[in-house]
């Protein structure tokens, strides 16, 4: 199974879609296909029904949170300073991230091929977190998309039953996002160290009383 080949198959059959191959630098080299959300549903149905091999099984759906990240790189350029050409180091700042990503692992049971890794990205992490649901194409995505909604807060349009799955209904946070802050219940940590120790100290500092007094009742 060749990702390039599948990409050109899709491009030939789904006009207007924009696809991108995201390389994976690890030894496994499991590259993935980034699909634009406008055409994702058509691409998915094509992958299931028209492509060769036909991807008739979606084994896994998961999410990734990419918070906004600033990357500064240094670059040497030549510039005219007071009429003299000099080498100047410039710091170029770029940002990446600031989106939520949903990853689908597709297999072809018919031809015993796979996985094909399909990705979709939301526009940002706050308001525009809508993505098309692929549950109409692969029923097995149903609960997993609900889980991605539950833990990451991606809203799947066209999902038949988008409710929380693991957390309770009145819960308002999305615990797998990187900026999730868990409740401050660090009052008793018998073997506190590292992060937990910091949280425990912060807990007692916020209470304004030494921990001994707390325990001595």
């Amino acid at each position: 199974m060749n990702l390039e080949e599948i990409k050109s198959q899709i491009e030939a059959n789904v006009p207007g879609c924009s696809l991108e191959i995201l390389p994976n630098g690890s030894p496994s080299g499991q590259h993935s296909l980034l699909v634009d959300k406008e055409h994702a549903l058509t691409v998915a149905s094509f992958l299931r029904d028209g492509a060769s091999p036909r991807f008739d099984y979606c084994s896994n759906v998961t999410g990734v949170d990419w918070p906004l990240k600033e990357i500064s790189t240094k670059q040497k350029t030549k510039k005219l300073v007071d009429g003299v050409e000099k080498d100047v180091e410039e710091v170029i700042k770029t940002t990446t991230g600031n989106y939520l990503e949903v990853v689908y692992h597709l297999f072809s049971l018919e031809d015993r091929q796979g996985p094909l890794v399909l990705r979709m990205r939301t526009e940002d992490r706050a308001e525009r977190v809508h993505l098309p649901s692929l549950t109409p194409v692969w029923r097995s995505a149903d609960f997993q998309e609900r889980e991605v909604y539950d833990l990451f807060g991606v809203l799947f349009d066209g999902h038949p039953d988008l409710r929380r799955l693991l957390m309770w209904d009145s819960f308002t946070d999305f615990p797998m996002r990187k900026d999730y802050v868990d409740p401050d219940d660090y009052e008793y940590e018998p073997t506190a160290h590292d992060e937990v120790l910091k949280r425990t100290q912060a807990h007692y500092a916020a209470q304004g009383e030494p921990s001994e007094a707390e325990g001595a009742r």
Binding site: Y188, E189, H193, L197, T200, E212, E214
Partner: peptide, 16 residues
């Protein structure tokens, strides 16, 4: 009730 914890000393010596 919260059992006795002496968090002010934790992390200061090796055993915590």
């Amino acid at each position: 009730q919260v059992p006795l914890v002496n968090i002010s000393n934790a992390g200061k010596n090796e055993s915590g």
